[in-house]
Write a protein that binds this DNA or RNA. Sequence first.
DNA 1: ATTTTATGATACTTAATAGCTATCAATAAT
DNA 2: ATTATTGATAGCTATTAAGTATCATAAAAT
Lengths: 293, 293
Amino acid sequence: MEIRHLLYFKAVAEHLHFRNAAASLFISQPPLSRQIRELEEELGVQLFLRNNKRVVLTEAGKYFATSVDTIFAQLEESKNITRQIHLAADSGELKIGYTSSVYQPHLAEILKALRQVFPFIKTSLYERPTIKQIEALEQGKLDVGILRAPVHSDKLEVQTLFFDPFMVVVPSAGKKFNNIGELADFIKDKPFIFFNKEYAPHYYDKLVEICHRLGFKPDITHEVNNVHSIVQLVEAGLGVSILPLSLKQQYANLQLSFIELKDIPVNTEVVLAYKKSNLNAALKWFIKNYNSK
Amino acid sequence: MEIRHLLYFKAVAEHLHFRNAAASLFISQPPLSRQIRELEEELGVQLFLRNNKRVVLTEAGKYFATSVDTIFAQLEESKNITRQIHLAADSGELKIGYTSSVYQPHLAEILKALRQVFPFIKTSLYERPTIKQIEALEQGKLDVGILRAPVHSDKLEVQTLFFDPFMVVVPSAGKKFNNIGELADFIKDKPFIFFNKEYAPHYYDKLVEICHRLGFKPDITHEVNNVHSIVQLVEAGLGVSILPLSLKQQYANLQLSFIELKDIPVNTEVVLAYKKSNLNAALKWFIKNYNSK
DNA sequence: ATTTTATGATACTTAATAGCTATCAATAAT
DNA sequence: ATTATTGATAGCTATTAAGTATCATAAAAT
């Protein structure tokens, strides 16, 4: 039995006329007669009573007709849902966003483990500022983002990863600061190197707040749009900066001094963000395993 | 899409191995690959992720697999029920039993009307004694019987058609009986013509009861097994008989006298009997219309 | 009663396609 | 680096669905 048989049966059951039914199927009458006969033979059931002038459904045929309707409806629904799942869950790709200011030593490790579980997954990493990531996540251009709070979006789920205090970064000079006051005096007139305001407005505000607490207004001479440039410019002696503490280990080999701001109660929250409606199975695995590490 | 595609899909989903799946389907691997590709193209959905070494279901594929299971189960159930209905309801024939002693002038009329509603029905009429009909009905050899109560069978449904009083049948002689006493005197020594006891035991008992009430014991000289023979023998002057009144009109043209036994409170009940489990649509129509006439 | 028309079945031919063989490219194990 | 295994591809064969022509017969028309 093939779906063709069921389809042809339905046509004859509706028309109760082989020639008309055949026309409605855009085939000629003899093959239709044959397919119906085949179906009846396979079932061992007479579905139609017919002579040259009249075609009627048997009782069994009547039942089978309604039954075939149900099956077709179910098949159609199944196809639709399958297509929906395909669109929602089976990109075969996991698009991950991250900000340059977050150092993630175990990301590579997790991507490796991901390929064990999803051997066909393609992963794409995008370094993007928080605000761009939020847009991209909302539009489905990213599956998950590693970024800094706050995330103001009711379309996204947010999970805290950790809280990151700040540190002052200055060129390595063997200098020692006994207290916050000495440090503030040292840097207050130095040129500051930082992200530009459009790139990371919230982050920019934090910097200004920290300097305010240290008793001065920063002179932001160089604005850049990624953390690597900031660090390089500081190392080259063009100025100082204030960055999240977690970056310290990433640049431990550079000629820089990092001074933690222990007494300044300002920090940033690093989070995972993703669309709740995103069915991507690799995403689910990623969230679960990133968190538990 | 054909059922073949779904069947092949299921095989690959179970084996997660094209060559093994092909072997399990007793086909070679290339056509299997092609059918799966066709299915994926029609759905617009990737069902498997695969390379030369590994085959896994996508999320959409996982859903589709369970969904196809359901559809197959439903199709199988539908086929079974259709076959059952075929066996129970679609004989395309209506087998009617009747006793020779019941005259049914509108039976022919009803059979004609039946053919309007069921143009393909084949009707078979069987003249059989009540006890044989009961057996045949129970065994499904008859669909419906027109017979005389009592019907002692818990497998059969019984519907009363009418109550039939008795009459005495004698050769036409212009004789007149002013009362039951005269009649009894006239027939008590005559030879009786009647059904044999094995053929219609209950009916036989009724005859004896009537004679008892008339004050004599019948001398049953001729035993026969159909009502036509009884009537013919009476007409030929071989004896007398006692028969149901309803037969009077059937033999009105013969040289016979019919004397109603108005004062004898013995009659027989004519009934329709049929199996309740019989789904024959023509039977249902027959019962309904026979009754309402 | 006879003729005409319409219809499903049948016999045979053509066209589409499922399935087969041979082979390739790529992966993973040795 | 080599070998074995596997799904994909190309081209051919065999099966079968679909088409054409025709028949037999039931119902309608005459």
